[in-house]
Amino acid sequence: MSDTAKPAVLSLHNVVSGYNELTVLKGVSFDVAAGELVTVVGPNGHGKSTLLKTISGLVPLKGGSISIDGQPTLTKPHAVAALGVAHVPQGDMLFPEMSVLENLLMGAYLAPGKAEIDRRLEEVYALLPKLADRRNQVASSLSGGERRMVGIGRGLMMAGRILLIDEPSLGLAPLIIEQIYGVISELSRSGRTILLVEENPARVADLADRLHLLDDGEIVWSGPPADLLARDELLATYLGG
């Protein structure tokens, strides 16, 4: 399955999941190796978000297995977080009545001590200087782009083994999207392992090591981004051109 020599950080095997009677994912398998940026693309409503939520335990696993560093994940989201999965959910899901700083501190909820928390804070502020300026502002008063940055910053504060990012461009102006992708690309270059969900494959063309095309709960195509962008018939069928 994996063509990389490095061991897989995240490994999905035949994952089946969904809500109550509804099955959304119908057997998804792939690996993400250390330092890789893997992107899942596909039309809306075909299970991209559900995939990330299943990995982090918000949606129950109905079949197959998920493992982090070879360890099978647990069913409770807080236990999955403890294994090193940092999920930046769709729509940010910030704590609206907390300040930016408190939101970031929540990201470091499982961090071992004050020194470590300060170290992570410094790192996040260095990467996202705007958050340092806004640290005492209440999250609900921020702009959409700032909120997205708090979401990513909070995910980074978790210092997980793998970062799951769900549609970071959703609902933002083109200029802000560029900024956000700039941050993601910097993160990737610094060696972080990232699983990214995105609707538009062109946006990750220069960024992703591999793409998986998810349609109706199944992976229908996998390969390097350039290959997908060269195949007009795939783009037309699954992504509307």
């Binding site: 959910p89 907390m98 408190e102 929540m106 909820y109």
Partner: peptide, 24 residues
């Protein structure tokens, strides 16, 4: 306190709190 922050986080967004490692 860390505990108090977890309590407020759970009140404001339960799913997000769980993702941060809070055992609700």
């Amino acid at each position: 306190t860390r505990m108090g922050r977890a309590i407020r986080a759970t009140a404001q967004n339960r799913d997000a709190a769980q993702l941060m490692g809070v055992a609700v």
